[in-house]
């Protein structure tokens, strides 16, 4: 039996608590306990970025981050990027630029892109590409994705 560790953290702007075993991944916690299914399990070993989440403003892999480490932190999923009025400017830019095809990589792309914009409010194309280098899109949509991040940066965030 693994011990259940009590954790308390902010998930999409709301304080929540959970009891989790030390080997549980943060991805399983947000998907299975909190029904936030935006982040996806892709490869499960840090190669694809489909499970990306923001933790205290830093992009992390949901599949390789122990859920216990969320304790005391602020976790944001793609659902949490939305404001009261719906999609965030970045998310709207993904729609406008046609940066979504099958959509499986999109929540992870949005999180990685949000991290780029937090670090570089007006990023260069190179900074965007480096920021998204851990996120795979298998529909070959990178150009539109980079354009969406550029549009969001130029759109008075």
């Amino acid at each position: 039996m693994q011990p259940q560790v009590e954790i308390r953290f902010t998930l999409n702007h709301r304080v929540v608590t959970a009891a989790v075993p030390p080997t549980m991944a943060l991805l399983e916690l947000v998907r299975d306990r909190f029904q936030l299914t935006g982040a996806k399990l892709g490869c499960g070993e840090g190669e694809c970025g489909a499970c990306a989440l923001l933790m205290d403003g830093e992009p992390v892999l949901g599949c390789l981050t122990p859920a216990v480490d969320a304790d005391g932190r602020e976790v944001l999923t793609a659902e949490g990027l939305c404001g009261a009025k719906g999609l965030s400017p970045l998310q709207q830019a993904f729609v406008n630029e046609g940066a979504v095809q099958c959509g499986y990589c999109t929540p992870g792309m949005e999180i990685a892109a949000e991290a780029v914009l937090l670090e570089h409010p007006t990023p260069t194309v190179e900074e965007i590409r480096r920021g998204l280098e851990g996120n795979l899109c298998r529909c070959t949509g990178y150009v539109a994705i980079v354009e969406a991040v550029q549009a969001a940066a130029g759109g008075g965030r």
Partner: peptide, 9 residues
């Protein structure tokens, strides 16, 4: 090293 998602941890 890896990607930003790994480098943060």
């Amino acid at each position: 090293f890896a990607s930003p998602l790994v480098r943060s941890r």
